[in-house]
C-alpha cells in the first residue's frame, strides 16, 4: 500500500484510485482516415515499458477526476509529477 498524490485532493490511499492505461497513446487526429490495421493498433497495442511509465489514473473514490502520473512498473512506486487533465 502507498499514498498517491491526487493533484486536487492531496495524498490519498492507493485503494481510492483506478488505473486507466498509458497516457502516451494520442487519439488519432483523423479517425475516419485510419485503416483497420491502424485503428486496431490504436485500440489494442500499448507500450509495456519496464521502468517509468506515464499513465492515466482516476481518483474514483474521491474527486473522480482523471490525471496523468508517472509510475515505475518495476517497483509500483509513483515517481513523477501528477498533472490534472493532461498527459
Amino acid at each position: 500500500m502507498q499514498l498517491i498524490r491526487c493533484p486536487w485532493c492531496g495524498p490519498r490511499e492507493e485503494t481510492e484510485f483506478h488505473p486507466g492505461g498509458p497516457a502516451t497513446v494520442p487519439y488519432p487526429a483523423d479517425p475516419a482516415a485510419l485503416s483497420d490495421a491502424d485503428w486496431a493498433r490504436f485500440v489494442f497495442v500499448r507500450p509495456n515499458p519496464k521502468g517509468p511509465s506515464r499513465e492515466w489514473w482516476a481518483h474514483s473514490a474521491g474527486c473522480r477526476r482523471w490525471f496523468a502520473a508517472e509510475r515505475d512498473t518495476r517497483t509500483h512506486r509513483f515517481t513523477g509529477p501528477m498533472t490534472a487533465g493532461a498527459p
Binding site: C9, R12, E13, A61, G62, C63
Partner: peptide, 10 residues
C-alpha cells in the same frame, strides 16, 4: 470535508 472510503463504502 472529504470524499473517501469508510470500510468498503464511499
Amino acid at each position: 470535508c472529504a470524499q473517501t472510503l469508510l470500510g468498503q463504502a464511499g
